[in-house]
Structure formats: C-alpha cells, structure tokens
Amino acid sequence: MQIRPASPADHAAILAIVAPTLAAGETYAIATDLDDDGVLAYWLSPTHEVFVAADGGTILGTYYLMANQAGGGAHVANCGYMTAPAAQGKGIARAMCEHSLVRARERGFRAMQFNHVVSTNTRAVALWQKLGFDIVGALPQAFNHPVHGYVDSYVMFKKLI
C-alpha cells in the first residue's frame, strides 16, 4: 500500500468513499444530503491537503490534513479520515493516521486535534487512543446520530513535539 497526494484522477474513487460515509450521517457533523459536487468541494477544500491510500490502482482510503484553526490556533493540525468499506479492519486508517502525523510534523504543526469524534465510533476512538491521542473533552449530546439519537462527541488531542 502507498499513501500519496490525491490527484484529479482519484476524485471518483474519493467520492465513492466519502459520499456514502457522509450520507450515512454516523461519524461526521456534515450535511447528509450533499450532492457529488458538494461532497468533493468539502473533501477537496482549498484548505485541505488530501491524500489517498492506494494498493495498485485501488483507492482504499483517503484523508485530509489542515490547520485546525486560523491565526493563533494555526499551529495545531486537524484531519479527517475515511476508509473504503471493503478495506475496513485492514489497518488502512492506522496507516493514514501515522502518515498524517509525519506529514503534520513536516509542515511544522506542534499538535493534532480532532474536534468532533462521535462517541459511538468506538473503533476510531480506540485507534486514536492507541496512536497516542487523549480525550481532552466530552461534548455532551453534541451529535445527533441517526440510530442512537443524541450522543457525546470527544475532542481528542496529541502533542507532536
């Protein structure tokens, strides 16, 4: 598997991963009714440095890296990760997160923060903790999950230096 910057040739594969995840409404606090252009505009935002995890010609996952905030908060990175359903449980998210930590350090970020990790996304919470992220805050009932109703979200943080 190779993790590399996304190219325009990857947009259809990125859309195939990101669109159903956003539409499901279970892990991202983003509108669930975005059309294809809206999905790509979100994921490929000019503020996002976007990567794909590929095995040969097959895109297994994608992530973006960005500054979490502007100005005085621009030294803290933020990322979003998505893995293709057929590739889940195969270490793709771990590899992408590890790659993003290296890339964030290369870009001079001093920390990484995830602002809204939905508590019911237990696989992600456990993985981020294994990779050294701490839950530094719980946002009570901050996410309206389509199955579980109002659930907590976590703010997770890791120092990079």
Rank of each mutant, 00 (worst) to 15 (best):
residue 4 R to E: 05
residue 70 A to D: 09
residue 149 G to V: 11
residue 99 H to A: 04
residue 39 V to W: 04
residue 34 L to C: 01
residue 89 G to W: 14
residue 95 A to P: 01
residue 60 L to Q: 15
residue 39 V to P: 00
residue 155 V to Y: 03
residue 92 I to V: 15
residue 110 R to P: 00
residue 31 A to S: 13
residue 60 L to D: 13
residue 44 L to R: 09
residue 71 G to I: 00
residue 1 M to H: 12
residue 74 A to I: 06
residue 139 L to M: 13
residue 63 Y to C: 13
residue 127 L to R: 04
residue 88 Q to M: 15
residue 40 L to S: 04
residue 89 G to V: 12
residue 126 A to Y: 13
residue 110 R to A: 05
residue 118 V to I: 14
residue 137 G to C: 05
residue 45 S to E: 10
residue 79 C to M: 11
residue 101 L to D: 02
residue 143 F to Y: 11
residue 71 G to E: 03
residue 44 L to V: 06
residue 141 Q to P: 01
residue 157 F to S: 01
residue 11 H to T: 09
residue 26 E to A: 03
residue 104 A to I: 00
residue 21 T to L: 10
residue 78 N to Q: 14
residue 49 E to N: 02
residue 114 F to T: 02
residue 133 F to L: 15
residue 126 A to D: 08
residue 36 D to V: 09
residue 18 V to M: 04
residue 145 H to K: 08
residue 132 G to Y: 13
residue 121 N to G: 08
residue 75 H to A: 03
residue 55 D to Q: 12
residue 113 Q to P: 00
residue 55 D to A: 14
residue 116 H to W: 12
residue 106 E to Q: 14
residue 124 A to Q: 06
residue 145 H to P: 02
residue 28 Y to C: 08
residue 132 G to N: 07
residue 117 V to H: 01
residue 46 P to D: 12
residue 20 P to Y: 05
residue 15 L to V: 08
residue 109 F to Y: 15
residue 79 C to S: 15
residue 139 L to K: 09
residue 45 S to C: 02
residue 27 T to H: 05
residue 54 A to Q: 10
residue 108 G to R: 01
residue 143 F to T: 00
residue 52 V to S: 06
residue 119 S to I: 01
residue 156 M to S: 11
residue 147 V to D: 11
residue 84 A to S: 12
residue 37 D to N: 07
residue 28 Y to R: 02
